[in-house]
Amino acid sequence: MSVVAEMQNLSKVKGGKRQYTDNKAGHIFLLPWTIGLFAITLGPMAMSLYLSFTDYNLLQAPNWIGTDNFVRMFQDERLLNSLQVTFTYVLVGVPLQLIVALFIALLLDRGMRGLAFYRSVFYLPSMLGSSVAIAVLWKQLFGTTGLVNQFLAMFGIEGMGWISNPDTALSTLILLNVWTFGSPMVIFLAGLRQIPAMYYEAASIDGATRVRKFISITLPLLSPIIFFNLVLQIIGAFQNFTQAFIVSNGTGGPADSTMFFTLYLYQQGFKGFDMGYASSMAWLLVLIVGAFTAVNFLASKYWVFYDD
């Protein structure tokens, strides 16, 4: 069961008062995790919630300033712009990546010869994609004298500095995200394999076309997997940082066109040492990601189909 399905199930099961057979052992085995939960996760979360209402700058003790940081966020044009950049990246990049992943997975499915080889080739970029080295490569590929322009020149097309142009810089990063479609593809492939072949056979006997089979069999039966990929990729895309940082030398440029929300948060907190403001930004991010996930879960009732 996937993380997503697991969470949907949690609310269904009811617990009652009873004896626990492994109470002591359970908590001993969980001790490292429990310490981590409080010391590394929940404690800092509470702390950052407090800091988001202060003007803490690492040097002086924090002063309570109420909701000033939150008011400031909605007047901060650069922050609003960074939200727009991030939303564009998520709302265009994730669906694009998933469509490519699903398309290739569909082609690869059904016992294609050389499947293992193709799968490796498509999977590899998603393992490398988050590294600084690939961001370096991307910077060259889409630079003024980059590989893309060299190819365009062969066809007599004059390219441009894709990364130095504010209109196209973000698109190159969206493309980089699409390039890493391998890991959702692997999940799609595993999901496709779970669909019983007899459904397709029965449909063939009834004279269903390929498109018909895709719409009536593949899509509904794959919808939990599509949902799972959607939720995880959206959460991941919101947190993207490295590529924008490297491609823009940490500036989010040109003209703030690659200023992801996380990059702006980093600049405020770890360059400007405005820890209070950075904390309030972090909580805004949690709220946004949480809202997206919640909407996803709510909407899933209308399009995700569970067999069991």
């Binding site: 993380v3 697991e6 969470m7 949690l10 995790w33 939960l37 590394i40 996760t41 404690g43 800092p44 979360m45 702390m47 950052s48 800091l51 939720v231 959460i235 919101f238 947190q239 996380t262 948060l265 907190g269 820890m275 950075a278 904390s279 930004m281 972090a282 909580w283 991010l285 949690v286 990601v289 996930t293």
Partner: peptide, 15 residues
């Protein structure tokens, strides 16, 4: 535990 999988690291990185 499941929720921490989805939690953005940024909310804990400052503290």
């Amino acid at each position: 535990m499941l929720m921490t999988i989805m939690l953005p690291i940024h909310v804990i990185i400052v503290p």
